[in-house]
Design a protein around this nucleic acid. Sequence first.
DNA 1: AGTTTTTATCGTAAAAATACGATAAAAAAA
DNA 2: TTTTTTTATCGTATTTTTACGATAAAAACT
Lengths: 112, 112
Amino acid sequence: MNLNHKHLVQEQFDTDTRELAELAKALGHPARIMILRELLLRRVCVCGEIVEVLPLAQSTVSQHLKALKEAGLISGTVEGVKSCYCVNPEALKRLSKLLKPLFDWAENPNCC
Amino acid sequence: MNLNHKHLVQEQFDTDTRELAELAKALGHPARIMILRELLLRRVCVCGEIVEVLPLAQSTVSQHLKALKEAGLISGTVEGVKSCYCVNPEALKRLSKLLKPLFDWAENPNCC
DNA sequence: AGTTTTTATCGTAAAAATACGATAAAAAAA
DNA sequence: TTTTTTTATCGTATTTTTACGATAAAAACT
């Protein structure tokens, strides 16, 4: 496999496909799902209480937060010494929109 | 990191969380999104025409098909020398159900 | 019977993801 | 000012993912 073959391969797909894949990938780990759930549960944007909820080291949680942030699913602001995160509704709406054709089909499948 | 530490970590999350993560992970690659799209497009279950549509080697496509199958998103039947796949609507419905709380929140967020 | 077609699997290499501890950096508290 | 708290990042080890070519196995032609 070439040095950045994967990168070249990814570019062959259209934007929507790549965007959906990226959002889905960000949701593709139980820790990150839990983070989103926790952020939704506590009405206000929370910070490192997430670490206490998850069975993972602080550095690992920080890494997962970064992944969610890079996918646009959450945004974080520095609040003094603490770091506050919240779910980005727009990203979820986008994901919903991208998945809609699949879900619509599932309600009325024409095969199998 | 312990030998199967990751496995132990994954077990600490509840079933719904793990199920959602697994389904999302399966969708977390543009090639697999394309496969689903292609299966939906052609009304009847198709087989290896997928290979022709994707910019990937046959063996790689086969691997992606396996991943989707293992996640329950598609099912495949052998039709003579050919292999026929189709999307499993139940899996998509399940994914939709698991994502609904997130999407509902996004329509009426209470933060940010 | 021999050849072709179709697809899954094996072997393998490179890259990415996952996890942790250690540490740095900045704000807050003492 | 020193210490503590909080969080991001670095370094690193391990595992998983992604990709390919080669090959095997089974059905379908010739």
